[in-house]
Write a protein that binds this DNA or RNA. Structure first.
Lengths: 191, 191
DNA sequence: ATTAAACTTGAACAATCGTTCAAATTCAAA
DNA sequence: TTTGAATTTGAACGATTGTTCAAGTTTAAT
């Protein structure tokens, strides 16, 4: 197993965990999905927990890379922030659930696995810090910006993102939610 | 098993499902928690799915009863709405997770059990409709109210509630989140 | 062609899963 | 006290869980 097929395999496992959750995904599901025999999976990735951890890290890296990249090329800070939020809510690649894999992991595992929960929390905190950085830029650029604490603003934005993504799973249409994003961000960050 | 001890048993099961999730809660966990033998559980409540369904319905009824009750006794509509939201975010009774049981159920089961997911979605829609009703009252009373569609406003409020509750599980302090509730509601509903 | 290291295979393991049901027990009416 | 129905019990079922490991296969250097 070379390096690229290894990366592909971890991504497949990640999508499976993301779709079904930790407990409902069996090692046999993984084996079938990766077309690998039990022993190979264990020798390549370790057990279920280790593979889940690798899945969490892959997902975290992907999200963070994308929202940092989008912000840099925007015409203004507020537009960059809105673009970042839109990317988080509507990632262009295939996704098995509207709900963020990190949030889903914390939700499922907070009482069962402090270790895996910690890794997911870590990824979410990195995202929040990046949002705070982008909000700071908006405040510097825009005279109309809120005078509220920027950490609080970043929490408000992140929680609204998590909430709206959840609403998509609750049956709201993508069009409806998409139409609300820009206004909602401006309402929170600008006065 | 009389009627009240039956209600107590369902509540115990609900708290266990809420804490551990559907897949990670075994019927043996339930049996130990209720101090009942396997056969008794099955004859009284049916199988795992039926018991989970009863748990969802109990939770839905409890939430809805409380937010309707709180609104009626408030001094104004906006205060009643804020009180309702505060109750959802900080219910006074014991709770095994900050994350709403209905949301947690949808998150875990949306790809595994359309039936149970549907029941959870139903409960959440009832809550949203009640929030919309309360927002409608605010708009009637308050001249400063937003002219935005009240269904959209209710989605925004509900998604913010879900988000803030999730943030509590992500490590934000109750004091910090609690301090943001009133401002956030006014920001959404009032101009 | 030989060899040793590296990888892959899949049958098998003990543990646990949701669920059943005949037997034991409890209960209430006569 | 007797009787028949209702409830409770817990051993047991087949299926499935995460994981292991001896045996088989592939790989690459000599």
């Amino acid at each position: 197993m070379n390096e690229t097929s290894r990366a592909v395999a971890i991504e497949k496992a990640m999508l499976l965990f993301w779709k079904n959750g930790y407990a409902a995904t069996t090692m046999r599901d993984i084996q079938r999905c990766l077309d690998m025999r039990p022993g190979s999976v264990y020798s390549a990735f370790g057990g279920k927990d280790e593979l889940y951890e690798k899945s969490l890290r892959l997902y975290s890296d992907m999200v963070l890379t994308n929202i940092c990249g989008n912000f840099e090329v925007a015409s203004s800070a507020i537009e960059g922030l809105i673009q970042s939020v839109n990317f988080i809510i509507f990632p262009n690649n295939y996704r098995p659930s509207h709900i963020c894999f990190l949030v889903k992991s914390v939700t499922e595992l907070e009482s069962a696995s402090p270790y895996l929960t910690g890794i997911a929390l870590n990824g979410l905190e990195f995202v929040r810090v990046e949002l705070e950085r982008q909000i700071e830029q908006v405040i510097k650029e825009d005279k109309n910006a809120q005078k509220q604490d920027k950490t609080e603003l970043s929490i408000l934005v992140q929680s609204q993102i998590i909430g709206l993504k959840t609403m998509l799973s609750l049956g709201c249409s993508e069009a409806q939610i998409g139409g609300m994003v820009s206004g909602m961000i401006r309402k929170i960050v600008l006065s």
